[in-house]
Design a protein around this nucleic acid. Structure first.
Length: 582
RNA sequence: GCGGUUAUAGUUCAGUGGCAGAACGCCGCUCUGUGGCAGCGGAUGUCCUGGGUUCGAACCCCAGUAGCCGCCCCA
């Protein structure tokens, strides 16, 4: 028998969703689908991983998401040995022809050095290699790391290079040089490496032409816009109204309402300008739909915060002005804000640090940097919301983290600190979104202005659960929305069939099949259970218990008890399904 | 990446140097075809892992791992 292995657990930041909680997830999704369909949205499902470049270009290289939170790997299946060998030969022919023989490269093995590499844990990949039988000398025709070199591997390589430097006349020097030549990094080196030392000009491009860098999607907008471009949806001339529900991935430290695999429910409205995609009507429609959705879900006390970050030309002008205004006062701000002032001045506006508020209030306002058309757009959005009666607050400090946002940006929040009806710790943003008029072009597509949002489904669920909890305990509070912000989303089965004696099991299953086919939800007990146990089990999961004993089988008259009333009746087999439905 | 905090039965947790515990759940009996109540009985443990201190460690010390919460950032 094998020794028991260490038990496996869901990896950090991921979790299992189990019944009955999944029932709530399904209810939420079904309400969302129902609302979206009333507004003419169709579902889109995009791949869970995409080319890394999609997010780098779409979300923005400098955002935290792209710079440090993505799950990225090199797709090994696309790795071309042939290209590497060809390039290897080419480089070595120019470099040191003595080592090139008939299109192959021979490197003199150096057993002590090889042993040292092994000790350092460097993994050598050998293609068509020849080891001498005596084990002391041999020829290695091509040596390489596999693509996607880790920081750790580079670190070990650097140690090997140090070793080589200390003995410059030896074979190790030459060996290390060759190692350099085959590291496929494509310039994407981390800060832990001196590029002059390691970067490989001749081979890099070739490798990455064939080895594709893939990334688990950290958000879904970029993928939707990619699909829009790829399938020429703009050529239909129609406004595209799409929604998605699915997992996203960010490598962050988990906490309440934040997971490494998390779910978003989102929509995107985009299309050519002639389809009306740029119209403020669309912004307002999306916001009004969200208000409706949250109301139907039973979310209480949501708050809509609205802002405009201007067009793609307004925004850089404003950021420049912000930097200018921050420069002289930066040193008075808290440590976090000093850093933000450097890296992302917009985020300073978001700061909650009480000591900095006065200074922040004195900073330039985005509203003063909007051009006429952006200002007009924003005014029309607000007018439409007013007309619909959707309450909102203009928050001039609302900025959003993704680079693609233009003009309208928004956030729906629920009360956080100390409010039992929240359930979100300090993550009080339930959903966020905005307009992205330039995103399609950034991804190489046609002009396709759009607006969208993403609901943090995990956070939404937490909010609903907290609401259900406070409704249960709080006596005087108003009731939650029917069916959701309560525990009624756990449905009991219509019937539980209790066979008496194992001889009745077959008949019980046949009866269950019949009832289930007629649309009833049914559980079957086991004839080996004592009747008492059957009753206890039945009462937990079902509204009725159907007793199937010797008498019932013989007569065709079944005994049915209804738990809610305690009433017990005899019902003919033919009437059973109808009676259980009640 | 940084900080706080926690880790003991299936679950929620008590136990602060001396026999491994409670509640709920589970199984059995009282009660072989009538549950919810009650009584009685029972099973279930790497006390997170590894070191150390001690006659003796779930408990004290050190290190590690994991969970939760917060910062950053975001949904």
């Amino acid at each position: 028998m094998p020794t028991p292995s260490k038990s496996l657990k869901a990896v950090r930041g991921t979790r299992d969703l189990l019944p009955p909680e999944t029932a709530l997830w399904n209810r939420v999704e079904s309400i969302a689908r129902s609302v979206f369909s009333r507004y003419g949205f169709g579902e889109i499902r995009t791949p869970i991983f995409e080319d890394t470049q999609l997010f780098a270009r779409g979300v923005g290289e400098e955002t935290d998401i792209v710079s440090k939170e993505m799950y990225t790997w090199s797709d090994g299946d696309r790795f071309s040995e042939k290209r590497i060998i060809d390039e290897w030969v080419r480089v070595n022919q120019s470099d040191n022809p003595a080592y090139v023989q008939a299109g192959r490269v021979n490197i003199q093995g150096n057993p002590p050095f090889l042993a040292k590499l092994k000790e350092l844990g460097i993994q050598l990949q050998v293609w068509r290699g020849v080891q001498a039988a005596n084990g002391l000398t041999g020829h290695v025709e091509l040596v390489s790391f596999r693509p996607g070199v880790s920081a750790d591997a580079i670190d070990r390589l650097m140690k090997a290079r140090e070793l080589a430097k200390s003995d410059p006349e030896s074979q190790t020097q030459r060996f290390a040089v060759r190692l350099r030549l085959v590291i496929p990094m494509d310039g994407e080196l981390g800060p832990w490496v001196d590029k002059r030392d390691v970067l490989v000009e001749p081979l890099a491009g070739k490798f990455f032409d064939s080895a594709q860098s893939l990334t688990l999607r950290p958000e879904n907008t970029a993928g939707v816009v990619r699909a829009y471009i790829e399938h020429n949806l703009g050529d239909t001339g129609q406004l595209q109204k799409l929604f998605y529900i699915g997992p996203q991935f960010r490598r962050e430290r988990p906490q309440r309402g934040r997971y490494r695999q998390f779910w978003q429910i989102g929509v995107e409205v985009l299309g050519p300008v002639t389809s009306g995609s740029e119209s403020p009507l669309r912004d307002a429609e999306v916001l009004e739909m969200l208000a409706t959705l949250l109301d139907e879900l039973g979310v209480k006390n949501w708050r809509l915060e609205l802002n405009s970050v201007g067009s793609s030309t307004d925004r850089p002008r404003y950021v420049a002005a912000l930097r200018e205004a921050l420069a002289p006062i930066k040193h008075q701000l808290c440590e976090d804000n000093q850093r933000r002032a450097e890296t992302n001045p917009l985020r300073v506006l978001d700061s909650k640090d009480p000591n900095d508020q006065a200074l922040i209030d004195g900073l330039p306002k985005i509203a003063d940097y909007l051009d006429d058309s952006s200002r007009d757009h924003f005014a029309q959005v607000r007018a439409a919301l007013d007309a619909c009666g959707v309450p909102y607050t203009v928050n001039p400090r609302l900025v959003r983290g993704l680079d693609y946002y233009t003009r309208t940006t928004f956030e729906f929040t629920v009360p956080s600190s100390g409010d039992p009806a929240s359930g979100l710790g300090t993550q009080n943003a339930l959903l966020g979104g905005g307009r992205y008029d330039g995103l399609s072009e950034m991804l190489g597509g046609p002009r396709a202005p759009g607006i969208g949002f993403a609901i943090g489904q995990d956070r939404l669920i937490l909010t609903l659960q907290a609401l259900a909890e406070s409704n249960k305990s709080g006596t005087g509070t108003e009731p939650g929305a029917p069916g959701l912000a309560s525990e009624t989303w756990v449905q009991k089965l219509d019937a539980y069939i209790a066979p008496l004696g194992a001889e009745r099991n077959a008949a019980a299953l046949a009866l269950a099949r019949e009832l289930r086919r007629s649309g009833l939800s049914v559980e079957v007990g086991d004839g080996a259970f004592r009747l008492k146990k059957s009753f206890e089990a039945a009462d937990r999961v079902a509204r009725h218990i159907v007793i199937l004993g010797e008498d019932e089988l013989a007569s065709g008259i079944l005994t049915v008890k209804t738990f809610a009333t305690g009433e017990q009746t005899k019902i003919a087999h033919a009437d059973l399904a109808q009676s259980l439905r009640a």
